[in-house]
Design a protein around this nucleic acid. Sequence first.
DNA 1: TTTAGGG
DNA 2: CCCTAAA
Length: 675
Amino acid sequence: MGLNKTKVEDSQICAFELLASLAGKLLQESESSASSNASEANDQPVIGGGGGVKFEQDDDRPLRAECLDHGSCGESAFFTRFSSPNNDQKCLLNEFPHAESNLFLERSSMIMNSNSSKNGGADLKSVICKSIPGKVEGSSDSRVSCDGYVDNGLSRQKRCDRLDTRGLIGDPCSSNDPMEKCMKFPVLINSVNNVELPSCRDPVTSASIPRHRNGIKLGIRDDAENFTRCNKPLTKSKAFRPPQRIGDRRIRKLLTSKHWKVGPKLKDCEFSKPAFLEGGVKSHYLKRKLCYSRERNQRNTFYKRRKFTDHSVVVTSDGGFSSESVCNSPDKNMTGDKNGASIMFHDAANGVSSSVIGHQASFHSKDSQVKFSIKSFRVPELLIEVPETATVGSLKRTVVEAVSAILGGGLRVGVLLHGKKVRDDNRTLLQTGITSNENLDALGFSLEPNPLQVSPPSCTEDPPALLPCDTSQLILRSPTSPIVDSGISDALPDLPPLTNLDTNIESNRESASSHADIVTDNTLSDSRALVAVPPVNTEELAMVPLNQKSKRSELVQRRTRRPFSVSEVEALVHAVEELGTGRWRDVNLRSFEDADHRTYVDLKDKWKTLVHTARIAPQQRRGEPVPQELLDRVLAAHAYWSQHQAKQHSKNQTAILKITDAHAVRNGVEDIQSI
DNA sequence: TTTAGGG
DNA sequence: CCCTAAA
């Protein structure tokens, strides 16, 4: 598990930026020769093991040695090596259109194969993993070099030597294959801070070797926090915890289920329904559970885990550039070398898809016209293989082609308001609420793979459309363990079932679980398998308005919204009728065990909204209309349980009468209203 | 971890 | 949906 997870993470590390960055570097070198390197090196603050900031300039060796020994961050000869003519270069640009991201994270990694030397980066393979969790501003980035090199570019870099890695992660790094090490390396990531100088975010180092970060002033704390939060599952000590915890929970669930399934231990208050509910579907539930509970347990385990890992996913996912952030920090982007990576990316993107990238973002509201310009769109990460003989020109061309391939119809634009995707294309801007300047601040756009072109529409209403590799002509595959990551830690939303094994599950239940599990299993069994395309979810590369960033958007991605279907509402109402309010966990267990994305809190919230919905005029209601009949039941049950605490529940005639009364009353009211 | 509420 | 105080 641990390994797989780690690998997954790794795969995510690879990204577009690195390539861009590389390209940029190469260009730079070709253009300004040696000067660039020197200046850059000078400009880049290096965080040394000594606890201070060091500036490595001339000699790469010292730095390297130090980095290896202390796992410190440093900037060094990465590029030098990189540019070495003898190196066989392979740049992998991977596309991970992960979720919407309020986080603008960029990751990239570069893998170079060197046929010639055996040293350092020249070893068989040098893997450089870079993670640039940057916002538009590129405020932060971090990179980790698995084999001891790091990179990077423009900002701070972090190197992790094997020792550190191993110590923290365990043995995974024992492998001699740099690639493997890299893959096993925990992903780091992070977040977004407004730090100007990117700090080293190497999870390992940051988390366990604080001293390396002594020189960092800004965002350290945030980083640490983010790291902790996002990568919990990755740390050695905690790596296995999630599963475990989940497992426990599952077990508990299972036991509970068994109790009332198998065991006659049905307490009145526990599972028997109120007398007035006689004829319910209880038996149905029992039956179903008996039949599928076990299977589900297994399958759901992954689900749970994934759920648990959502944060990681978010962290590692790619985001888009928010027009707002771009606007606010144009200078930053253009000025700092530290943001080189980001800049490079921009450049590359511009070169590739200037059509999508605008320049000035100005929102003006005039008359009834809403005007806005899109500053830029973020291009999904791509995985590209470049021959060792490739020239800079060819590299650029390749990138352009790759991007073009995607932009040429492979993407669609999404509109986001307040960070939420506006799905109804038929609504007018006015109706949507995009009318004033204020609103424009909350407006965002996203580029997302076009599901129609990329993959078959999912049966789920959820966004998770996968982005098949075939979207573009690019070779899309993860460096080593392609799908693992997306399957396990990535998929934000449930992935559309590739195969629906859960045919037994009621239609009203989310049926997405099967897919994920399958993927996961495959991945686990053979991480090397080349999957068609990682279940990259189609979750668009969201471009969230800058305002959003100030909130929590940068830390954790909000769960994808999943409106309750009528059938779910029905199940909820029914369960509450039987169990009462205040026992949401039981409700969840009983009626939503299959829907792992519905937590008891969700159910509680839904009930709250249902009650509210039932009380307002039908015209005021939004979303998928809930049958009045259900709403009436909601009110009835609500009224009933309000008077009778779930604990006190007793199925007696009185209760029945009361509920009936409430129901009747409600109906009367409704009738009057409708008239 | 759950429950209960506010946001 | 998220976040949290309490339990």
